[in-house]
Simulated scan of single mutants.
Amino acid sequence: MPRSLARLRRLVSEGRSDAPGRVVDGLGRIGLVGYGVVHLVVAWLALQVAFGVPDAPPDAVGAVGTIARTPGGVFALVVAVIGLFAFALWQLTAAAMGFRWAHGNERMRKRVGAVAKSIAVSALAGIVIDYLMGLGSADGTVQQFAARVLELPAGRVLLGLGAVALIGIAGAMTYTGVRRTFMGDLDVRRLAPGVRNAIEVAGAAGHLARALAIGVVAGLAGAAALFADPAWAGGLDTALRALGSTVAGAWLLAVVAAGFAAFGLFCFADAATRRA
């Protein structure tokens, strides 16, 4: 075991990134591209909802279904799943022994963030697998999960704690977007200043839009806990439609959709330049 750990450390220290080897690095970058494509499709579906065009739900399930219906879409989704799991492994390695350029609290924050990224991309990979196997919608799954939690002893407390955790994630995303700490994970030294600025703006807008959406999901979970009613709970589809039903209505949803599109574009730059 010590010899295997030493080899892993050498792979991480000698490679282009904190990925454990070139194969995982390459597949992980493909996974990031797939992650970006999903966000772009979600943005497009959200825009359609904003302006009254009925279509698939503006969430990961709707995006995956839209991709699957394109020529070669199923094959692309299979490749994306492999890439997403590779990126998840990459992030776990980074959390364990990466971020060599960061120190102290900054390194700890980045390692915690890497674990969160691993969970997020693994969840998307799971959604793709569920869709390909013909399972149900995301919002139905969220409500079923909330119902099961509410049936447990202190279920309302547990669901409320879940809402608090989601608020914490939204807060961390907001911090990342405002402080633009994500740029530290990228190797952009050789890029032109204009390109670096474009990546930074897209990343900031994307993180803030996602933070807002997760904050709404947290609010829905909190309402389900408060009223002991799982019907209040919902995923991204419900959250985006809730934003569209506010006073700002379609325009607010359009702004959030633009943020999701910006994050999708940022993922492409992330795939090309990531070092952690």
Score class of each variant (00 low, 15 high):
Ser4Gln: 14
Ala6Asp: 13
Arg7Pro: 00
Leu8Gly: 05
Ser13Val: 07
Ser13Met: 11
Gly15His: 01
Asp18Lys: 00
Ala19Trp: 00
Pro20Ala: 09
Gly21Trp: 02
Val24Ala: 10
Val24Ile: 12
Asp25Pro: 10
Gly26Asp: 10
Val42Asp: 01
Val42Trp: 00
Ala43His: 01
Trp44Thr: 11
Leu45Trp: 01
Leu45Cys: 08
Leu47Ser: 07
Gln48Val: 00
Val49Trp: 02
Phe51Asn: 12
Val53Gly: 06
Val53Tyr: 10
Val53Ala: 09
Pro54Tyr: 09
Asp59Ala: 03
Ala60Asp: 07
Val61Pro: 00
Val61Glu: 11
Ala63Glu: 05
Val64Met: 05
Ile67Tyr: 01
Ala68Lys: 03
Ala68Gln: 04
Ala68Asn: 07
Pro71Met: 08
Pro71Asp: 06
Val74Gly: 04
Phe75Trp: 15
Leu77Glu: 06
Val78Gln: 11
Ile82Met: 14
Trp90Ala: 06
Gln91Met: 15
Leu92Lys: 02
Ala95Leu: 06
Ala95Cys: 10
Phe99His: 11
Trp101Pro: 04
His103Cys: 08
Glu106Lys: 15
Val112Ser: 15
Ser118Ala: 13
Ala120Ile: 05
Ala125His: 04
Gly126Cys: 08
Gly126Glu: 07
Asp130Met: 13
Met133Ile: 12
Met133His: 14
Gly134Leu: 10
Gly136Lys: 08
Ser137Thr: 14
Ala138Ser: 14
Asp139Phe: 02
Gln144Asn: 12
Gln144Ser: 15
Phe145Arg: 13
Phe145Ala: 15
Phe145Ile: 12
Ala146Trp: 03
Arg148Lys: 12
Gly155Leu: 11
Leu158Met: 14
Leu158His: 12
Gly160Ala: 11
Leu161Thr: 08
Gly162Val: 07
Gly162Ile: 05
Ala163Asn: 03
Ala163Arg: 01
Val164Glu: 09
Leu166Val: 10
Ile167Lys: 06
Gly168Arg: 09
Ala170His: 00
Met173Pro: 01
Thr176Leu: 10
Thr176Phe: 02
Val178Trp: 07
Arg179Trp: 06
Arg180Leu: 02
Met183Lys: 07
Met183Arg: 13
Met183Val: 14
Met183Thr: 13
Leu186His: 01
Asp187Met: 04
Val188Asp: 11
Gly194Cys: 03
Val201His: 09
Ala202Trp: 08
Ala202Cys: 11
Gly203Pro: 00
His207Ile: 02
Ile214Gly: 00
Gly219Glu: 09
Ala221Ile: 03
Gly222Ala: 11
Ala224His: 02
Pro230Gln: 04
Trp232Cys: 02
Gly235Asp: 06
Asp237Ser: 15
Asp237Lys: 07
Ala239Met: 12
Leu240Cys: 07
Ala242Asp: 06
Val247Pro: 03
Val247Tyr: 13
Trp251His: 15
Ala254Leu: 11
Ala254Arg: 06
Val255Asn: 02
Val256Met: 10
Ala258Asp: 07
Gly259Ile: 03
Gly264Phe: 04
Ala269Leu: 08
Ala271Thr: 06
Ala272Leu: 15
Thr273Leu: 11
Thr273Tyr: 13
Ala276Val: 12
